[in-house]
Design a protein around this nucleic acid. Structure first.
Lengths: 327, 327
DNA sequence: CTGAAAGCGCTTACAG
DNA sequence: CTGAAAGCGCTTACAG
């Protein structure tokens, strides 16, 4: 059986209270007692039960992380950074891959609440459904508007979208198509689309938008992308709102005998390490993933620790264009 | 304040015991009482505190997951599947990215133990250091030998390595180089290297092995890979033990003016969805990631639930060669 | 400087 | 069918 505080106390010949005090370094304890207790702890290989502590302290030091899927390299890398920063700060991470399914998100949210998490980082789509604000729980969203009171952190999507669209324009593209995820909600990531549309309109063009499922489903992605070639055979520029979409498009372009960038210029979004390694030729808008993670945790922790200094409602971190050879 | 069982009991006019019983569906309760209690729970928007439950039950229903980093698409996808299966089975996942750093692993392990996890899935390198077996805790390793008693699940590394090496041999390659991660330990993933060496020897060749750091560090990876070209200018075949390495090599080959597959054939390992999307031309050995996850959880859960039917010490799941155009 | 008591929110024998 | 009591492993006033 795992030793408990009582066992340590007996072995050291003191009360549980005293053991607790040396563990938490609280109150006065004589050096002698402290040593006795520490020896007993070592001898028994004792370490405290954080479940019991959490129950008493009403503080779990656990942060819930809800996102679509760590399979997507953007979220995989974001998760890595988030978790790493949490560990550094003494927080633990409970992971939830919701695949943007509303029912799963609801279940996950309830699970997190039952587990008394101190805060939640949300990177999923579904808005409103989850009353994140109802429970007075610390919540920070990554690139999603969840409610007026929930801070949002993300890259400067509008700026990134503008850079992408303008690069294609200035490259002389005449028929520029946007490939975006499905989703009706007005989320910051949607600003990439908005920026594209604005650039198009400013140049007297009509936006052309295709939506494909975000989850790995190469077949249905292919089908949608194929339609671009039949419906817009003159396509010569593509802005994909993430690098995976860009890659899928480039694959399809090859199948249709189109050369990139010769006949069609392509630019993506995200610029993950993974995509940069596997497809270094891709021109893309790089998000500062580590900074996004850091900022989100900073804000969340401030909320958890009750720092009432208003945290900014929206933080837009600067993007960078990474020039490959595809645009 | 969050309502507790006592609040529900008062509102429903029953004892806490009864509330607990209807929640857990244990013992006899009249339909009338059940309804009263359920109404009260709804009215108060009550949900149980799992921390308190865990304390009493000595069962947290939490599984710890220790792996190098979810930034690597293999682990990103593995994590997704593991978490998903856990959620399905009512387990929660506490995530730890150790980057294979021993000190971090030790801290994470202690953290998981303090949090009373029911079991741990380990996908990191460091062996021996962690006395996983000392605590009698359910542990399953992914592709790592941790101790004689800890079950290992992974792809059939030896078979995969053999397939890769033989494909290069049969493609007529004369100077075949292996690119592998750093690490001295005898781990199942090392069987990829072993298989390569065996194939080489069987064909009267000397194995040529280069080791590069696994963590994203494009510069130092590049340096090592560059050495291949100076030290083995006649290299015409490369087996990289993961797809990221393969991609890095291909990038370097281009910089050195070498054509793939014309002058050098390249084959990778993992075959993640991400790599297949971003680099569909890569020939690679595909691991059955979802099956690895499923198998690992099945074994772990059996151990947790005390199913004493010996679980297999080692499970090798079949790999598949995905023929792209690089080899 | 140290300890006995109460309590965090739940569950489970034990009585009735 | 229902409730009072004890206890899961810890911590924190409160006394001394």
């Amino acid at each position: 059986m795992k030793p408990k505080i009582e066992d340590v106390a007996k072995l050291a010949g003191v009360s549980p209270t005293t053991v607790s005090r040396v563990m938490n370094n609280r109150g006065y304890i004589s050096d002698e007692t402290r040593e006795k207790v520490q020896n007993a702890m070592n001898e028994l290989n004792y370490f405290p039960n954080d479940v019991a502590r959490s129950l008493f302290n009403k503080r779990s030091n656990i942060i819930g992380l809800i996102l679509p899927t760590t399979s997507n390299p953007f979220f995989g890398e974001l998760t890595f950074h988030l978790e790493n920063i949490c560990a550094e700060m003494g927080y633990k991470v409970l992971l939830c891959n919701s695949l943007n399914a509303i029912d799963k998100e609801e279940k996950y949210l309830e699970m997190l609440l039952r587990n008394q998490v101190d805060g939640i980082i949300v990177g999923t789509h579904n808005r409103g459904i989850l009353d994140y604000h109802k429970q007075n729980l610390a919540v920070v969203a990554i690139d999603r508007y969840l409610s007026e009171t929930i801070p949002v952190v993300g890259s400067d999507n509008y700026e990134g979208g503008t850079m992408a669209a303008e690069l294609l324009m200035s490259g002389g593209c005449q028929c520029i198509v946007l490939i975006d995820g499905i989703g009706e909600l007005e989320t910051p990531a949607r600003l990439r689309r908005k920026a594209y549309s604005d650039v198009m309109k400013r140049n007297g063009r009509a936006p052309i938008i295709y939506e494909i499922p975000e989850v790995f489903d190469r077949q249905s992605q292919q089908e949608v992308i194929s339609r671009i070639f039949s419906e817009h055979p003159d396509v010569d520029g593509v802005f994909a709102t993430n690098d995976l979409f860009a890659a899928s498009f480039i694959n399809e372009a090859k199948r249709h005998g189109k050369e990139v960038p010769g006949e069609i210029k392509v630019i993506g979004y995200d610029g993950t390490e993974t995509a940069q390694t596997l497809m270094p030729e891709l021109t893309t808008i790089k998000q500062p993933i580590a900074r996004i993670a850091r900022t989100a945790i900073d804000i969340l922790v401030k909320k958890i620790e009750g720092d009432m200094k208003e945290s900014p409602q929206e933080t837009r971190l600067p993007v960078k264009i990474v020039k490959g050879t595809t645009a």
